[in-house]
Amino acid sequence: MSKMTNLGNDIITILNKRYAPNTMVETSYKNLDLAFKTDDQGVPILLFIGKKDEQGHIKGERYARRLKKSGDGTLLKDHWDHKGKAT
């Protein structure tokens, strides 16, 4: 089941942008800290959202992006799955 609506449109807008390939990007939105890993095309694929602790780790929730493309590269599915707590 897609959890995209649980992330909110503003966060989805941040995650729909392209970033540097194969990097971990840290940012914040309102009172939340976000960290996400990008794939080799700069698309966010793994998200940690919550609050940073003293060591810089985000305590909160973890999401994984599911992208499904056809043989010619057309995007068929794009959604975020909630994977549980991020500690």
Rank of each mutant, 00 (worst) to 15 (best):
R65K: 15
N22C: 07
M1G: 08
K83V: 05
G60S: 00
T38D: 07
K17S: 15
F48S: 06
P21G: 10
Y29D: 14
E26R: 11
K52V: 03
G42S: 11
L34V: 03
N6G: 02
A35L: 04
L32G: 04
P44S: 00
V43M: 01
R62H: 07
E54L: 00
N16A: 15
A35C: 10
T38F: 01
K83G: 06
M1H: 01
D33Q: 10
S2E: 01
N31G: 03
S28D: 07
M1C: 11
N31S: 09
I58A: 01
R66L: 10
G84I: 04
R65W: 00
G71T: 10
L15T: 15
A35S: 11
D40F: 08
M4L: 13
L15A: 13
T13C: 12
I49H: 01
K59W: 09
D33W: 03
N9E: 15
I12Y: 02
G42I: 11
K52N: 02
H82C: 06
A86R: 12
D10E: 15
R66E: 11
V25Y: 06
N6L: 06
M1I: 04
D81V: 09
D72R: 02
I49P: 05
M24G: 05
S2T: 11
I49Q: 00
R65H: 09
K17I: 11
R18K: 13
T23D: 10
V43P: 00
G60M: 01
L34K: 07
N6Q: 09
N6I: 00
R66G: 08
A20C: 13
G71I: 13
